[in-house]
Amino acid sequence: MPLLELAGITKDYRLGKTFVHALRGLDLTIEQGEIVALMGPSGSGKSTLMHILGALDTPTSGTAAFDGQSLQQLSENQLVTLRGRKVGFVFQTFNLVPTLSAQKNVELPMIFLGVPKRKRAARAKELLTKVGLADRIRHKPNELSGGERQRVAIARALANNPEIILADEPTGNLDTETGGTILELLRRLSVDDGRTVVLVTHDPEAVRIAGRVIRLRDGRTVEETANA
């Protein structure tokens, strides 16, 4: 059974009297443990697709299933729990809470799952160390560089040991070296722990770790290539 299965997905945004068709009938299947790279020009619907994959947003039409469970049938609170336990998001715009330190930001998903304080703090420090931010634990987001914020966001995405990591341009703000470390981290999550990774990227380096590349144009998949 595939981890994620999308069929006939459309997403329309209404702007006054006109509609923006962000996704126009998209089919996509993602297997457990694979790394998928999503590519496509700006405005082609990559972020919209990621939101639907992560149960953050609902499609206008079409069906989406996670682990064989149809997302349409879940209540709002069940969706929240699914997101909290199984999905790790790395947003294109980081989306860190400005009033909280790096450590607290990483702890946030664990707080809502009710993880005890000690365990939470230890895990947050461990993850921040992993992304190379051991000495930035107490910094607030506005005291961090763009790349450092990116890495805090990645650490946060990993907090609850999610089954799938959805990363929207995770290396977009990083130099090649740091970007390489992050990509290696994501690759290991897939290879060693069997976790699924979907990443939106324009970065050829990132494409290299992907098992599959999917190209979007105008809300549809136009090309699927298997990477060797």
Binding site: G54, E76, V80, N95, L108, F112
Partner: peptide
């Protein structure tokens, strides 16, 4: 608003 969205995206329920 954005912060609320973030918290909900990482697993906060409405009641939280």
């Amino acid at each position: 608003t954005k912060e609320i969205g973030i918290m909900k995206a990482v697993g906060a329920k409405n009641s939280h």
